[in-house]
Design a protein around this nucleic acid. Structure first.
Length: 596
RNA sequence: GGUCCAGUAGCUCAAUUGGAUAGAGCAACAGCCUUCUAAGCUGUAGGUUAUGGGUUCGAUCCCCGUCUGGAUCACCA
């Protein structure tokens, strides 16, 4: 039993013995003792003053005395105001470290065949433009949440719904057909997603010019936007696409292939992957059938012009269109079809959509629609809505070119990592391949940590002018500490030291105890991160752990310690810390180099 | 306008979910490498937690009002 449970039980018994009342376990609050007071764990005694009918100080003392007498691991106590600070014995911490040392994957719960199955949808790009910083946040969050859920014993399927059809891709297709001169990624030496994205921007320029020209002839903005030749050409393309026109389908296929090849490169660089990929072009028709079925069930309505609607006014929402008057599908239609296919294919216990908070309304509606269609899982879908990434100028807009491109950003990060590393010269003597592999790890560590350390729900700021730091609360700082740890452990092994035997310690220093305390809460942090879907908790924990370790490393010598018992103990705590860093960072999708 | 989210040091972010004197990093200043990797460690300075009320032993956190910023309410995705 862990120390918190022991204290909880002790307090429970104390209150019963001293004041003759049963107390609800939830009212027993235990927290880490603040650094400025003596003690390891603290019980908040305010809730018990009602039962004791004494002041908080006296109540704390009563309970403290009881705990000392009845709970062996508690060696001392003091009360400050309403806080009962408990000192836990060195033996307890020493034993705890030993348990952790001998656990294979400390903090990780292995799945078994009975583990619930969670499907996580993330990434879900449109195929008309390359990935940017906003997509990076999505991809990193999705991947990390998948890893964290796996770490708590869930079966996880990572999925991606590719929005490969629709007016957006037709815009790029039209512009390419008009101005592309048969350019291909090969012919211009450019990644396919970037090439297609260029034509998306070209389309927008053309469209804007046409609208301006038409408005100059006296049309209103709305009229001009409907009359612009380019948009009508794109719409015509979409219509022909839905009608299976071979020419359009071929062009669509070709350009999408270019984009996929480009995405694959970016995904690989980011280190994210998927177990199952769905394409909107395959699922939208299933969605349409579902909508028509809903119409027959009487849960949807058909308008005079032929469009199909869901009336959600009883749910406090508006009317929502599901099929256009020309019978074509909208975004929502596709999501219904995709959901149905997924549940047919997998025994999903829990569905998680990693999609930005701008789509909160969309998922509210989706959930209700699936429920109306009779799917019992409709109401249980979880929209993990994360905040946008903003630039100092405000929101990123693909069409206006105010985006931070994913590939560019990664390249820049690698460049900074290389320069910094070369300046420090710690990798001198390594081959170019080894060096660039380490530079890559550090660059991605910096980028990923920068994004994941922020509470996912919050809007975050990224300033491209100031490159991401490598010092302080950063990924490289944590990686660096890991490299240091590995270096010490290598030296110890080389010297033939064997440190895995149980050490006998009744004289741990406060810094050492602090470290063990920090280390020991790792499983709780993972559990918390999983239940709140927050990689940021893991990131900030890793930082705290590493900061604690660096102080320890600075204040004590490990290999230079002459007392063998102490030396073994310090190697143990060093090894355990290293393992947790690696596991924790792994949950964020960040690799740790053995040296840097 | 309706609904939802946010506002914490100059900047970027934390705060164990209602607990003790609100913490880190960056930027600034001052120290620490003959010693296990200085991408490190230590110190100084920086705050009316947007604002006004309320709830209670106790509020950055919960409730109400105000201000500011953002998202959303499409036959877009």
């Amino acid at each position: 039993m862990n120390i918190e449970s022991l204290i909880r039980e002790g307090v429970l018994n104390a209150v019963k013995a001293l004041y003759g009342t049963e107390v609800d376990v939830d009212t027993i609050q235990i927290q880490m003792t603040r650094k400025e007071f003596e003690g390891d764990l603290t019980v908040v005694v305010f809730p018990f003053t009602r039962m004791s009918k004494k002041g908080p100080e006296q109540t704390g003392t009563d309970i403290g005395e009881y705990l000392i007498a009845n709970v062996p691991s508690i060696s001392k106590y003091n009360t400050v105001k309403g806080f009962l600070n408990l000192v836990i014995s060195s033996e307890y911490w020493s034993d705890l470290l030993n348990i952790i040392l001998n656990e294979k994957d400390f903090g990780i719960i292995q799945k078994d065949e009975n583990s619930p199955l969670v499907m996580i949808e993330y990434s879900s790009p449109n195929t008309n433009k390359p990935l940017h910083l906003g997509h990076i946040r999505n991809n990193l969050l999705g991947f990390s949440i998948a890893e964290i859920l796996k770490g708590t014993g869930k079966q996880v399927i990572k999925t991606n719904i590719v929005n490969d059809r629709g007016i957006h891709i037709c815009k790029s297709m039209y512009a390419w057909q008009r101005e592309g001169k048969n350019e291909t990624p090969e012919s211009v030496g450019k990644k396919g997603d970037h090439l297609v994205g260029d034509y998306y921007v070209k389309f927008d320029k053309l469209f804007k010019k046409e609208v301006a020209d038409l408005m100059a002839t006296g049309l209103s903005k709305e009229e001009a936007e409907n009359a612009a030749p380019s948009i009508n050409a794109a719409r015509e393309m979409l219509r022909r696409w839905e009608a299976n026109d071979p020419e359009i389908r071929n062009l669509w296929k070709t350009m999408n292939e270019w984009v996929y090849a480009g995405f694959d490169v970016t995904y690989k660089k980011l280190g994210v992957d998927f177990d199952k990929i769905y394409y909107e072009s395959d699922t939208y028709s299933v969605g349409r059938e579902e909508v028509l079925r809903g119409l027959e069930l009487g849960v949807f309505e058909r308008n005079d012009d032929g469009s199909v609607w869901a009336n959600l006014e009883n749910e406090g929402l508006d009317k929502k269109i599901l099929l256009r008057s020309d019978g074509t599908s909208v975004y929502m239609t596709q999501d219904i079809g995709t959901a149905k296919l997924r549940y047919e294919e997998f025994p999903i216990d829990h569905m998680v959509y990693v999609v930005g908070n701008e789509q909160i309304y969309h998922f509210q509606v989706l959930s209700i629609l699936l429920d109306k269609l009779g799917y019992k899982w409709g109401k249980s879908l979880y929209h993990f809505s994360y905040g946008m990434v903003e630039l100092p100028q405000g929101k990123m807009k693909s069409r206006e070119g105010t985006v931070v491109d994913a590939d560019d950003l990664i390249e820049e990060m690698v460049e900074v990592a290389r320069n910094t590393s070369n300046e420090l010269g710690k990798l001198d003597g390594y081959s170019e391949e080894e060096k660039s592999e380490i530079h890559r790890m550090i660059a991605l560590g910096a980028l990923k940590y920068f994004i994941l350390k922020v509470d996912p729900k919050k809007t975050m700021m990224f300033n491209p002018e100031e490159s991401i730091d490598f010092n302080g609360n950063t990924g490289p700082f944590i990686q660096y500490t890991y490299a240091r740890i590995k270096s010490v452990l290598r030296k110890a092994s080389d010297a033939g030291i064997v440190w895995n035997s149980k050490t006998n310690n009744s004289m741990l220093g406060t810094k050492e105890i602090e470290l063990i305390k920090k280390v020991s809460v790792f499983p709780e942090v993972v559990a918390e991160a999983a239940s709140t879907y927050s990689p940021a908790l893991i990131a900030n924990y890793c930082y705290d752990l590493v900061k604690e370790f660096n102080q320890f490393y600075h204040d004590f010598t490990i290999l230079g310690e002459t007392d063998a018992e102490k030396k073994f103990f310090r190697l143990q705590i060093t090894e355990v810390t290293g393992r947790i860093i690696k596991t924790g960072m792994g949950l964020l999708g960040i690799e740790c180099p053995e040296r840097m």
